[in-house]
Design a protein around this nucleic acid. Structure first.
Length: 893
RNA sequence: GCCUGGGUGGCGGAACUGGUAGACGCAAGGGACUUAAAAUCCCUCGGAGCAUAGCUCUGUACGAGUUCAAUUCUCGUCCCAGGUACCA
């Protein structure tokens, strides 16, 4: 045996062995319990970084652990291979997105293999391959048939200079990241999945996912955002000119006529409100700038141009939620009024940037006294504030002295016949009254919006429809699938998709009428679509006549344990849940929830570095000392940015290759796990890796020692009571406690850091006893038991190392990968003495050891008799003594 | 802004359901072994103070509160991270 663990020699040897013997190949076997362990597949951005290493190490340990527990484990890996970075790289490096992507896949696959992960590589999928995305196109057609997809106009970020659509990430400070031009919004017809049809179901099942972290289901619930309230109709005031009159030259009459003819189908504005109880306090109305009434109501009034200018300004602004919130709340009077149905009040109608067309009805009844946003708006534009809810135990609210809105519950005032009523009761009463009058009803509204999937990009799944002037939108016939992405395309320097410029792709015959001048849709799908069903494809990745093999899916799905970054808590996980509902509705599967258990890993973080000349820098491109950094290329001062999640686009990534070259896969794996528990974020720093290296070698030497001195003895695994030496007893107990601790830590919470600590403690305990050739047979055989289980417990974490030691220890019954997980004896867990601490007034003053079976009375007596305790309680009244069994005594004096 | 988490020594972290704060490891300092170095082993290690075998006070972002007892529960404040619908 070498005197030290040699990763270079050992790791490749075992990797070859596993691969050659197809150890990790999974196949359906009805006689065995299945376990589908999945880690989120990576986007092939270049090289793997520590975030990947951490995620995949966690998964691999679980996979190996479950395998040792007798499960038939499916542990696949693949590539989320479509996406924008491939296009950006193609422009920057003058390559093709496919070339770049496949090269990255090859590099990253090599790195993953070098980590020794136990994947069944025979199931690898890459979403950019036609044999994958053809089934996505197929599903799109099925969804189209069932009206689960539709087209509508919606906005995209548009750079006029580059003549291209920008992703939110490509917009920096309202400007294009390539040219700096101010970004505008452009309306385009786009495809949407009707995810809102499942809003209620997705919401209800959030509470039926006990294997998910509560924070994730909570975030999803808030994202879906169900609110119950009322829809209320406000009559639009028709001015005097609409009454019969003889003045034919009246301008306003003309314009009103025009409105009646073309735009206004009903003369009511519908709002959604969660606070119908405050209806009497509604003093003005706010419409979303895109609301159809905004244009029609303002037309012909003196506000027309001001409104048009406002709408134009808003339409150019960014539309992401975070940006919208950034803008100051503002609005413009549209030149018309509506009538509050409760009290007949004339309410001016505004259009305001905080009213969102996507939410509710696109109109908000504003109650400034009881809503902060409305309050601010009313103050800004000098609008009336009327208090209608008076909280109990608070002085009477007075609009003239209020400095903020009061959203609290209370009793109704200024509300006609509802005065004095509790506001919760009033919600129902007012809504019922409105319902009777035909002016309102109870409604439910969701924050969740339909999923827009059209992307004006090249590197994605083509949307399989054809646009024909005669027939409109025509689905591509199933037999024509896949619609393959043309590979002989060159990315445009402006970042736009080349697809609309490729006539051979774009031109198509209409499948319905045969017209030869029809046009193929040149948009591709959002890449979240691919990742919403890849885990189903893994069950039968080579199935060529269907999206998946039903039996294989029935056997493997749902995923038993899903592991991935918490960054995906909402979008990816919600879309995947939605997709399973679609497949379920289409009768393709019989379950709805894809992931039974979920572990969301915390992000691996690193500061960003930005050089004024070279932009973002990789960590190795900057020299850092004393909190200052300089660029290795130009020497200029580098701005050290915030500590954020590792991502290729910000270049704050750590390539694991340096660690792998120096320490090998096992120590890298061990260190990643030891550094912190998985759910916690981790600011990257490899300072502790040396300790892991030392630990592995301590175990290595310990194994060598045991083999040397205990050649002729067998490992002891009998009852604790049959041991006689105190060293042997202590060690034996410690070993069983360690097995329990490690098992519990993995099983309960995946807290590998504390599991590893426990093994370290056992190793330390072995080093602390006299262990040599002269030791008793009993101590030797307990030591042998310990080292065998140390290796078994560590084997999912450091598998190469464990295989090597296992083999060197002369284990003949197969590799360690195929061994059973260690089990502990209850009888060996208990010690006969316990430590009791004594507090006086909650402060620790003394401790003593006592027989583990002592009664509370005896413990209390012993505590009071304690010498140190005596000193403290002398001459004082003992008010109370609290005994926490087998642990603590607190004496209150 | 909004939603969700988090904040414990010089550092990563530990502490079961409210019951010994700092397990395990890193770094640092001291020592042993060695011609030397590496490796290995041993000791110290939150802060302050004192009459220094030890003892006392203080300490889990900050400020209040509940409790015999709070890192743990409640309220408020600050800071950091993730998401915010076209990054994946």
């Amino acid at each position: 045996m070498d005197d030290r663990y040699n990763p270079e020699k050992v790791e490749s040897r075992w990797q070859e062995y596993w691969e050659k013997n197809r150890i990790f190949r999974a196949s359906e076997d009805e006689s065995k319990k299945k376990y589908y362990l999945l880690e989120m597949f990576p986007y092939p951005s270049g090289k793997i970084h520590m975030g990947h290493v951490r995620n995949y190490t966690i998964g691999d340990v679980v996979a190996r652990y479950k395998r040792m527990n007798g499960y038939n484990v499916l542990h696949p890996m693949g590539w989320d291979a479509f996406g924008m970075p491939a296009e950006n790289a193609a422009i920057d490096n003058k390559t093709h997105p496919a070339t770049w992507t496949y090269q990255n896949i090859s590099t990253m696959k090599g790195q993953l293999k070098r980590m020794g992960f136990s994947y069944d590589w025979e199931r690898e999928v890459a979403t950019c391959k036609p044999d994958y995305y053809r089934w996505e196109q197929w599903l799109f057609l099925k969804m189209l048939e069932k009206d689960m997809v539709y087209r509508k106009e919606s906005y995209v970020n548009w750079c006029e200079h580059c003549q291209t659509v920008l992703a939110n990430e490509q917009v920096e400070d309202d400007s294009c990241w390539r040219c700096g031009e101010m970004v505008q919004q452009k309306k385009l017809f786009q495809w949407f999945f009707r995810i809102t049809d499942y809003a209620e179901d997705l919401l209800i099942h959030c509470d039926k996912l006990p294997g998910w972290p509560e924070k994730v289901t909570l975030m999803q619930k808030n994202w879906i955002g169900k609110s119950t309230g009322s829809e209320i109709s406000f009559k639009i005031e028709t001015d005097a000119c609409n009454a019969p009159c003889n003045d034919t030259s009246c301008k306003s009459k003309e314009s009103n006529k025009d409105i009646n003819k073309t735009q206004i189908k009903e003369d009511y504005i519908k709002v959604f409100t969660t606070r119908p109880d405050t209806l009497f306090g509604a003093t003005f109305m706010c419409l979303a700038p895109e609301h159809p009434l905004v244009e029609s109501l303002s037309k012909g009034t003196e506000q027309e141009s001001a409104v048009a200018a406002f709408v134009d300004k808003i339409s150019k602004q960014e539309r992401s939620s975070s940006s919208i919130e950034k803008y100051e709340k503002e609005g413009v009077f549209v030149g018309a009024w509506c009538i509050n149905p409760a009290n007949g009040r004339r309410m001016p109608i505004y259009t305001a940037n905080f009213a969102l067309m996507e939410y509710g009805t696109g109109a908000v009844m504003s109650v400034p006294a009881h809503d902060q946003r409305d309050f601010d708006f009313a103050k800004k534009y000098n609008l009336d504030i009327v208090v209608v809810i008076q909280p109990k135990d608070r002085e009477t609210l007075d609009p003239s002295t209020m400095i903020e809105a009061c959203p609290d519950p209370g009793v109704l005032v200024n509300s006609g016949k509802y005065n004095g009523m509790d506001n919760f009761e009033a919600m129902d009463k007012i809504t019922s009254w409105l319902e009777k009058e035909g002016l309102g009803k109870k409604t439910i509204s969701f924050r969740l919006r339909d999923w827009g999937i059209s992307r004006q990009r090249y590197w994605g799944t083509p949307i399989p429809v054809i646009h024909c002037e005669s027939c409109g939108v025509v689905p591509v016939p199933e037999s024509d699938l896949p619609i393959t992405l043309p590979e002989d395309a060159h990315l445009l320097d402006n970042g736009g998709s080349p697809l609309p410029t490729l006539d051979f792709f774009k031109q198509a015959a209409c499948p319905k009428c045969g017209r030869t001048d029809a046009k193929r849709d040149t948009d591709t799908m959002d890449t979240f679509v691919e990742s919403s069903w890849y885990f189903v494809r893994y069950c039968s990745p080579h199935c060529s006549n269907a999206m998946f093999d039903k039996d294989a899916v029935k056997y493997w799905m749902p995923v038993d344990q899903y592991i991935g970054g918490v960054e995906h808590a909402i979008l990816h996980l919600l879309y995947s849940r939605y997709f399973m509902r679609v497949l379920n509705t289409l009768g393709l599967i019989d379950f709805k929830e894809p992931f039974t258990n979920l572990l969301t890993q915390g992000m691996v973080l690193k500061e960003t570095l930005k050089c004024p000349e070279h932009g973002y820098l990789f960590p190795e491109e900057a020299k850092i000392s004393d909190g200052k950094a300089s660029c290795t290329k130009c020497g200029k001062d580098v701005e050290i940015g915030r500590v954020i999640k590792m991502s290729k686009s910000k270049k704050n990534v750590i390539d694991p290759n340096d660690l792998l070259n120096k320490y090998g896969a096992d120590i890298t794996r061990l260190f990643c796990l030891f550094a912190s528990p998985p759910e916690k974020g981790l600011e990257w720093n490899d300072d502790g890796v040396e300790g892991c290296y030392r630990f592995i070698n301590r175990v290595w030497r310990l194994a060598a020692l045991c083999m040397d001195i205990a050649k002729d003895v067998k490992a002891y695994n009998g009852p604790l009571a049959e041991l006689s030496y105190s060293d042997a007893k202590k060690l034996y107990t410690k070993a069983h406690q360690t097995i329990k601790k490690v098992t519990d830590d993995i099983e309960g919470s995946f807290h590998f850091n504390t599991a590893i600590s426990a093994v370290m403690e056992l190793v330390n305990a072995m080093y602390s006893i006299e262990l040599n050739a002269a030791s008793s047979e009993e101590v030797k055989s307990v030591a042998l038991f310990c080292i065998e289980h140390i290796i078994l417990l560590l084997s999912p974490i450091v598998p190469h190392f464990a295989e090597e030691v296992w083999e060197l220890m002369g284990k003949k019954s197969g590799t360690i990968t195929e061994q059973s997980w260690s089990s502990y004896r209850e009888d060996a867990l208990v010690t006969d003495e316990i430590l009791v601490v004594v507090q006086i007034n909650g402060k620790l003053r003394s401790k003593f050891a006592i027989d583990a079976n002592s009664s509370d009375e005896l413990i209390q007596k012993t505590a009071l008799a304690d010498e140190v305790v005596q000193k403290y309680i002398e001459g004082k009244d003992i008010k109370k003594v609290i005994v926490v069994k087998k642990k603590l005594v607190n004496i209150v004096v």
